[in-house]
Amino acid sequence: MNRVADIIKILDARSYNIGKSEREIVGGYAGDFLSFVMGRAPSSCAWFTVMTNVNVCAVATLADVGVVVLCEGVEPSEQLLDKAKEHSVNLIGTDLDVFEAVKKYSEL
C-alpha cells in the first residue's frame, strides 16, 4: 500500500501540496493531454505529467487522481498551487523525467 510520502521518498520529490496524506495511491498514468488522462487514468492513481497550468487540478479532482507528480523539474503555476490547496489535491514535483519517474515508482 503506497501513500504520498512513499512516493516523495522514492522520487526524491518536493511536496507542493499534501491535501490527503493518508490516501492510498494505486497504479499510475503518464501523459499531458487532459482528455487522455480523464479517459484512461484509473481512480486513485499517480499521474505523471509536465503540465503545470490550473486545469491540471480540475482534471485531478474530477478524475479522482491520487497524486499529481510534476516531472522534469517543472513548477506548478501559482493558480495551480492555489487550486490544489483549495481542493486538497496531492501535488508533488521531481527533477526526474517522466520515464525515470515512472520506472522508480514501479519499484514501490
Binding site: 482528455s35 480523464m38 497550468n53 486545469n55
Partner: peptide
C-alpha cells in the same frame, strides 16, 4: 498548449 484539443472530449463523454 493548455492540454486540451486532443480530440478525445466527445469520445470520453460517450465512454
Amino acid at each position: 498548449g493548455l492540454g486540451f484539443g486532443a480530440g478525445m472530449g466527445l469520445p470520453n463523454i460517450k465512454k
